[in-house]
Amino acid sequence: MQAEADRFELKAGGVRGPHLKSAGLSVPRSAHARRRLIRPFRASYRSKPQVTKPTATAGFIAPAVVVVVALMYLPFLYSVYISFTNYDGLGSPRWDGIANYVQLFHDPEMVDAIRNTAVWVVAGVVVPVALGLGLAILTYGIRHGGWYRLPFLLPYAMSGAGVAVIWGFILQPGGALGDVLKTLGLPGSGTAWLSYWPDSTIAMVIASAWQATGVNCLLFVVGLQAVPVAVLEAAEIDGARAFTKLWRVTLPLLRPMTIVVVGLAIVAALKTFDIVWVMTQGGPGYTSTTLATAMYSQTFVADSYGYGAAIAVLLTVVTGLASAVYLKQQVQVGGVKR
């Protein structure tokens, strides 16, 4: 039984060819023949209820799919349609073919937008995730760990309006950050952080990380609970020091949650809008604009719905691909790797 369970190793992707190979069988050519070969494995479970009745599985998956498709995919399809038209919000859209997409490639604003979006993805993922992970590990399992975590969780709970005002205080020339630099005797106390690139984008990434780190920390703490105590103790008995324990035991076991945190961070970074819009509106000029703010300004400020929709489609495709590629990473269903 155990051996068969080993062979019938469940992977999130389902049973595929390589397993058959490792089980010492050759892989037949036709899909039909392959399916017939799989059946012997299933036969060993004949005495138990069928696991994968399609209708039952569908029942679990359907509510999520229905809700998300109805409320998000349908509006997206509408946007895709609008991206091929010339439309200012009134009357009817006029079909325009791929003119908007052509414009995307010639628009100098797009160069800035793509550059800044790339900066957001890299910095906006690395900084909050690394900080969140560090904090989770440092605060996990110690007494009053929850209290040590609290300062990092509170920023996420603050409303956007208050946060924007505060960072405005901090980043304006002669603002709070300037005061701190002056007190410490460091240069830059009169700098207008938000007026020049790349300072503006970096400052906003930091403001965003201030809120995002706590979320990541929380999720990593949840993930750390999946690390079995017994395994950690075994490692210690084997003489592993703290760093080795971390690197070779904790981090690999945290993988399911790391995938979640990084996946979310990628999506959030690509979609970042509120903080940029409130602080700089993508300016001055278009120096701090991102794909998300460009989409907004073209649609709602310039009333160029078609062009804005084309940018939205581009942004969605990029975000979708990035997250799909990242999340495709297999999750070991077996729990602890043997």
Binding site: A192, Q281, G283, P284, G285, T287, Q298, V301, A302, D303
Partner: peptide, 18 residues
């Protein structure tokens, strides 16, 4: 008109800084 305004607001902002 809106499309011109959008660009103008941004460019005047850039002008004030540079």
């Amino acid at each position: 008109p809106a499309p011109i305004l959008n660009t103008a607001l941004s460019e005047f902002g850039a002008f004030m800084v540079n």
